[in-house]
Structure formats: C-alpha cells, structure tokens
C-alpha cells in the first residue's frame, strides 16, 4: 500500500493535468456533438424527404462505425488537404461519433410529446409559439436530459480511446501509461488513473439516475 501512496504523491501533478485534459476532451467533443446533433435531428424531422434521407444515412453511418476508424480517417486521412492536429482530429472524431446518438435522442424527444396535446393546446387558443414554449419544449427537455447524460458517460469512457490511439493526447489514460513506465509500477499508476475515471463516470451515473427520477413524466 505504501508504494501506491508514493506513486500518488510523486505524480499527483501529472494525474491532475491528465484528469483536466480528459474533462476538456469530453467538454469540447460534447459541444461539437450537440451542435452537429441538433442540425442532424432537424434534418431527420424536416418535411423534405431528401433531407430526412441525408439525416438517416448520417446517423446510421456514424453510429455503426468504430470510433477508432473515425479517428484514423480524420488524423491520417487528409495529410495533403488539411493537416489537422491531434486535438482537432480527436475531438472531431468523438464529437461526430456522439452526434449521431444525440440526433436520435433529440428527435425522439420531439416525438415524445403526443400530437393530441399539441392539438389540444392549439384548440384552447394558445398560439403556435405558446404551444411550443409551454407544452412541447418543457416535456421534450425532460425526456431528453437523462439520455443525454448517458451519452456523456459514454463519452467519458470513449475519450480514453483518443489518448490511447496514435493521437497521443496526454489524457488520464496516457498519464497512467507514462507513469507506469516511469515508476515500473503498473498496478499503482493504473489504480490512480482508474480512480480518476471512476470519479467522473460514477458521479455522472448518480446525477443521471437522480435526474431520471426527478424528471420522469407520469402518464
């Protein structure tokens, strides 16, 4: 146990910076995923058939191919056209990968509000804008938050792939590997890195569970 503690004390700054980098990767990718996901969700519910089709193909492609393949495509694929750095390639890959799931979540959130409710509020004399504001969006929001939280948990875990692949971003996992090589103590350094990941994912799980209960719509 003493060795574990020693590794922690000596390499705390590295672990801390790895922890922040993992958080930053997740945050940046989430922004990309939300932006693109919203656009694709709009495509999926658009009245034009062609747009719907584009949305469907996008979603099915990005969510069914491995994240590692996406990373390779962005990082190695365009050396002559635009040479993008590991951060851009990594967050773009993780962001676009997750955007497909986000698009589906948002789309199902819109459809979660029954058409009957919209008809009812319109016939009660609400304007279209009021209907959206007071009836549709509050309910969509409540149905969408728990699955979005789930996707963030998945992103935290997937972000480790960025650090492990050829991108060599010094995130929590990479820090664990470097420390393992420096101290020749794989168990201790991976233990502390694992603790970092567990802090993130377990906290997020608790928040999602809590929100799921609080936001549940009783029908």
């Amino acid at each position: 146990m003493g060795e574990f503690w020693e590794v922690f004390q000596r390499h705390l700054p590295e672990f801390r910076s790895g922890f922040y980098i993992t958080c930053r990767l997740v945050a940046m990718s989430f922004v990309i995923a939300m932006g693109v996901g919203t656009i694709i969700a709009a495509f999926r519910v658009a009245p034009a058939r062609a747009l719907q089709r584009i949305g469907t193909v996008y979603v099915e492609f990005f969510r069914n191919i491995p994240l590692l393949v996406l990373i390779f495509i962005f990082f190695f694929g365009f050396p002559e056209v635009f040479n993008i750095g590991p951060w851009v390639a990594g967050t773009l890959a993780l962001g676009l990968y997750t955007s497909a799931y986000i698009a589906e979540t948002l789309r199902s959130g819109v459809f979660a509000v029954g058409k009957g409710q919209i008809d009812a509020s319109l016939s009660l004399g609400f304007t279209y804008r009021q209907t959206l504001q007071k009836v549709v969006l509050p309910q969509s929001f409540r149905t969408v938050i728990p699955p979005l939280g789930n996707l963030i948990i998945a992103m935290i875990k997937n972000s480790a792939i960025l650090g492990a692949s050829a991108l060599a971003i010094p995130d929590l996992l990479k820090t664990g590997r470097i420390t393992a090589a420096l101290t020749a103590n794989a168990h201790a350094s991976f233990f502390w890195a694992a603790l970092g990941y567990l802090i993130l994912t377990v906290t997020a799980t608790f928040i999602v569970r809590h929100l799921e209960k609080r936001l549940a719509i009783r029908r």
Binding site: A112, L151, I153, T201
Partner: peptide
Amino acid sequence: EKVTGLEDQVALDTDTK
C-alpha cells in the same frame, strides 16, 4: 429499463420510440 452509460443502449431506446 436500459443500462446507463452505454451509447448503443440509448440508441435502442430512442430508435423504438
């Protein structure tokens, strides 16, 4: 109920709604 923290479980959940 779907297991938390897995993207393809979220997809299954939203796909069928």
